[in-house]
Amino acid sequence: MAKEKNKQLFEVLESETIEECLERMKKAGYMPIRRIEKPIFKEVKKGNETIYEPVGRQIVFEGKNE
Rank of each mutant, 00 (worst) to 15 (best):
E53F: 04
Q8Y: 03
N48G: 10
F61V: 00
E43D: 06
E37R: 14
E66C: 10
V12T: 09
Y52R: 14
E49M: 15
K26W: 02
A28Q: 02
K42D: 14
G63P: 02
C21M: 03
I40S: 07
R24E: 14
Q8L: 02
K5G: 05
K46G: 04
G29H: 02
E66N: 11
P54L: 04
P54I: 03
E37C: 05
T17I: 04
I36Q: 12
M31A: 08
T17H: 09
P32Y: 01
E4V: 05
Q58L: 11
R57T: 02
E20C: 11
P54K: 09
I59W: 03
N48T: 13
Q8F: 03
E19M: 13
F61G: 00
R34Y: 09
S15C: 12
G56I: 06
E53S: 05
R35C: 14
I18R: 08
K64Q: 06
P54R: 12
E66R: 12
E11K: 15
N6S: 07
E43T: 08
E49S: 14
L22T: 00
Q58S: 12
F61R: 00
Q58D: 02
I40N: 10
T50M: 12
E20F: 04
G63A: 03
K7I: 05
E37N: 13
E14I: 07
E20P: 06
K38S: 06
K64M: 07
E19C: 10
V44D: 06
K45E: 07
K3L: 12
A2Y: 15
E66F: 09
G63F: 01
V60K: 08
K7Y: 10
G29D: 00
K3Q: 11
R35Q: 13
S15Q: 15
E23V: 04
G47N: 06
E62H: 01
K45S: 09
Y30P: 00
E16H: 15
E11C: 03
I59S: 06
F41T: 11
R35I: 07
N48E: 06
N48W: 15
M31K: 13
E53W: 09
I36F: 05
V55F: 11
E20Q: 15
L22W: 00
K3D: 11
V12P: 15
S15F: 11
K38F: 04
P32T: 12
K3H: 14
V55E: 14
A28Y: 00
V12N: 11
M1P: 14
G63V: 00
L9I: 08
V60L: 09
M1D: 05
Q8S: 07
E16L: 10
K26V: 00
L22A: 01
R34F: 13
R35M: 13
L13D: 11
I33E: 04
Y52K: 15
F10D: 00
Q8K: 14
V44M: 10
K27V: 05
P39F: 01
M25D: 03
A28H: 01
E23H: 08
N65M: 12
K3I: 09
K46L: 08
G56V: 04
P32F: 04
E37V: 13
F10A: 02
A2P: 14
I33S: 01
L22E: 01
I18V: 15
F10Y: 02
I18W: 02
E11F: 05
